[in-house]
């Protein structure tokens, strides 16, 4: 069985169906992949400015919306200066 248990208390990156990218510490999850993130921040990507991080705090994301969950390598992540990163935002999923 695939499980999110290994991500608990780790810093993770979430990509949602509308293209939103959120990083936070996974505090919990359930059978439907609903996820609780603490100390979470949205990362807003754009081509003409560096990555903007918007603090969101404690978040409960519905499993329906989640496309991807990945563990962040915190050492590598902190070594990156987000203000120097220019990238296309992820487009929302269209059916």
């Amino acid at each position: 069985m695939s499980s999110l248990q290994g991500y608990v208390d780790r810093r993770v990156i979430l990509v949602l169906q509308d293209g939103v990218v959120i990083v936070g510490v996974m505090a919990g999850f359930d059978q439907k992949s609903n996820v609780v993130l603490s100390d979470s921040k949205e990362r807003i990507y754009s081509m003409d400015a560096g990555v903007e991080e918007v603090p969101l705090g404690l978040y409960l994301v519905k499993g329906d919306m989640i496309v991807l969950i990945g563990e962040l390598d915190e050492a590598v992540d902190q070594a990156v200066d987000l203000s120097t990163i220019h990238a296309e935002p992820i487009p929302r999923i269209q059916y």
């Binding site: 969101l56 705090g57 404690l58 978040y59 409960l60 994301v61 329906d64 919306m65």
Partner: peptide, 15 residues
């Protein structure tokens, strides 16, 4: 209705 929700943001102190 729960199925229409994308996310909820709750007070930090709740954790």
């Amino acid at each position: 209705r729960g199925s229409t929700i994308k996310y909820l943001r709750v007070p930090d102190t709740l954790l």
